[in-house]
C-alpha cells in the first residue's frame, strides 16, 4: 500500500459566510482576487501541487458553504481530512465568536482518531480593510484562542492584497503532511518520538 502512493493531502476550510474562504483559496491557487465570487453551495475543491522538502504533494483544498444549515454535509465532506483551516474576518466579531462552534462541529463530524491531536490552523482574514482601522478582533485575542485550543498556528491574511496567503498555506501543507505521517506510522504500528510542541511565533512552527 505504501508503494508509490500519491501523497494527497485533504484540507477543509471552514468559517462563517463571507469571511473570505473562497477568496483565500483562489488567491493561493490561481493568484487572483475577484470581487465577483459567488456563494459556495455545498462544497467545492481546488488542488495545488507543491514541493515540501524533497516530497511532491498534492494539496486538495475543500471550500465549504458558510451557512450553518449546510453543516449536515460535514460527515460526508470532512471524511479523511488531514488538516482543518478555520477562517474568520478580523472586522466582524461574530465570525470570531463562532470559531468554537466550527471547531467543535468539525471534530464531531470528521471524527478523527485522536481529536486532541488533529491539526487546525486559524486565519484572520481581511486585515486590509480600512487600513486595519475597522478591525474588532485583536491579534492577542486571536492568539489567546489558539493557545486555548492546544497551540493552533495563527496567521493574519488579506486575500485581496495577497498578504501572508502563501505562508499560511505552506504551513497548512506542512501540518497536514506531518499529520499524515503520524497516521501512517500509527497504522504500521511503529512508534516514533512525538514532535515537540509547536512554539508559537505568530505563524507556523513546522
Amino acid at each position: 500500500m505504501s508503494l508509490r502512493r500519491r501523497t494527497l493531502l485533504k484540507v477543509i476550510v471552514l468559517g462563517d459566510s463571507g469571511v473570505g474562504k473562497t477568496s483565500l483559496m483562489n488567491q493561493y491557487v490561481h493568484k487572483k482576487f475577484s470581487q465577483q465570487y459567488k456563494a459556495t453551495i455545498g462544497a467545492d475543491f481546488v488542488t495545488k501541487e507543491l514541493q515540501i522538502d524533497d516530497r511532491l504533494v498534492t494539496l486538495q483544498i475543500w471550500d465549504t458553504a458558510g451557512q450553518e444549515r449546510f453543516q449536515s454535509l460535514g460527515v460526508a465532506f470532512y471524511r479523511g481530512a488531514d488538516c482543518c483551516v478555520l477562517v474568520y474576518d478580523v472586522n466582524i466579531m461574530r465570525s470570531f465568536d463562532t470559531l468554537d462552534n466550527w471547531h467543535e462541529e468539525f471534530l464531531k463530524q470528521a471524527n478523527p482518531s485522536d481529536p486532541r491531536k488533529f491539526p487546525f490552523i486559524l486565519l484572520g482574514n481581511k486585515i486590509d480593510i480600512d487600513g486595519g482601522n475597522s478591525r474588532v478582533v485583536s491579534e492577542k485575542k486571536a492568539k489567546d484562542w489558539c493557545t486555548s485550543k492546544g497551540n493552533i498556528p495563527y496567521f493574519e491574511t488579506s486575500a485581496k492584497e495577497d498578504y501572508n496567503v502563501d505562508a499560511a498555506f505552506l504551513c497548512i501543507a506542512k501540518t497536514a503532511l506531518a499529520n499524515e505521517h503520524e497516521q501512517d506510522i500509527y497504522f504500521q504500528g511503529i512508534p516514533e518520538a512525538v514532535t515537540p510542541e509547536n512554539e508559537q511565533r505568530g505563524g507556523c512552527a513546522c
Binding site: S17, Q36, Y37, K38, A39
Partner: peptide, 13 residues
C-alpha cells in the same frame, strides 16, 4: 444579513 451577503455575491458580473 445572510441574504444580504449572498445578494452581494449574486451575478455580480
Amino acid at each position: 444579513h445572510q441574504i444580504g451577503l449572498d445578494v452581494n455575491r449574486t451575478d455580480r458580473a
